[in-house]
């Protein structure tokens, strides 16, 4: 009983952050039909941005957040032009290995530039403990959660209410129809990719006070984000929110009952089971059918 509030609060906080990572991933998949294996590396870049800003100029990650938006916008555009643009119409295998290649390259650029050392960003709020209905957490976690939720909400509103968002959704629904309607799909892909990268870059900055920064930091999160995205249905943003909460719950409860050591096995097994029995996600339909499921 005593553990319950802590479990619930941890689940919520973790879920909010996973959501921000996953939402970008699912956006890119939903619209471009590209599984971005390099997603985690952009998260890692976000973490390093926060780390260097903090250690060089004592900039708080929350200040860096403002800088991160334009920075990752540019990073997104650049990576789109340099790498993704040429493979938009290529086969799945080409796309998969392109993003895998991007992932390897980015990871090792970070390794060469900044070494493999574990780095920490620990501003004052990382050690500020807050008690919330019997649960103890630090302030950074709460802020990260709040910003992540606000950001995810903002993105969903953008998709729903703006013209650009509607165009993107139309393209996700039916590529050919969108082209026939005169939508410049190439621009849509560029926008989707860039927004996805901005989301995950921001997530990296937000996570920096809570986690360790190192070149492979992205890997653990990206695998997790895939679990989330597949649970929610690849391409389904609302599904990604639910998926985040489920994974966060499995993780927290798993860590509590089985111990930290085995919690990952739990969600990877869950992942495979969902892929096999509900490939369209626990709630959704979209995405799977276009891949010939």
């Amino acid at each position: 009983m005593g553990a319950l509030p802590q479990l619930v609060v941890s689940t919520l906080l973790l879920g909010g952050i996973y959501a921000l990572i996953a939402v970008g991933l699912t956006l890119i998949f939903g619209i471009m039909r590209v599984v971005n294996f390099a997603h985690g590396e952009f998260l890692m870049l976000g973490m390093y941005l926060a780390f260097w800003s903090f250690s060089l100029w004592r900039l708080d990650p929350y200040v860096v957040l403002v800088v991160a938006l334009p920075v990752f916008f540019v990073v997104g555009l650049l990576s789109y032009w340099l790498v993704m643009k040429g493979v938009i119409k290529a086969s799945h295998n080409v796309q998969i290995f392109t993003t895998v290649g991007l992932s390897i390259a980015l990871q090792n650029v970070a390794l060469v530039l900044w070494t493999g050392d574990y780095r920490f960003v620990r501003p004052w709020h990382a050690s500020e403990v807050v008690r919330l209905g019997g649960a103890a957490l630090n302030l950074s976690q709460i802020v990260a959660f709040a910003v992540a939720v606000a950001f995810t909400g903002g993105l969903m509103a953008f998709m729903k209410f703006t013209h650009a968002g509607r165009v993107m959704r139309a393209t996700a629904e039916d590529r050919e129809a969108a082209t026939l309607m005169g939508i410049d799909t190439e621009r849509v892909y560029r926008l989707a990719w860039t927004i996805g990268i901005v989301c995950v870059g921001v997530a990296g900055v937000l996570l920096s006070p809570v986690y360790t920064v190192y070149p492979q930091a992205g890997l653990q999160f990206v695998l997790l984000a895939y679990v989330v995205v597949v649970l929610g249905g690849l391409g389904d943003m609302r599904g990604a929110l639910f998926g985040s909460l489920i994974v966060a719950a499995v993780e927290t409860v798993g860590a509590y009952t089985l111990g930290i050591a085995w919690k990952e096995v739990l969600y990877f097994v869950l992942f495979i089971l969902v892929l096999v029995f509900r490939p369209a996600g626990l709630f959704g339909q979209r995405g799977a059918e276009t891949l010939g499921m």
Partner: peptide, 19 residues
């Protein structure tokens, strides 16, 4: 610190080759 360079080249090589 430069030992990761070959992996950067792998990554780029992969991108270029598949395309």
């Amino acid at each position: 610190g430069l030992i990761g360079v070959h992996l950067i080249i792998y990554g780029c090589l992969l991108i270029v080759m598949v395309r």
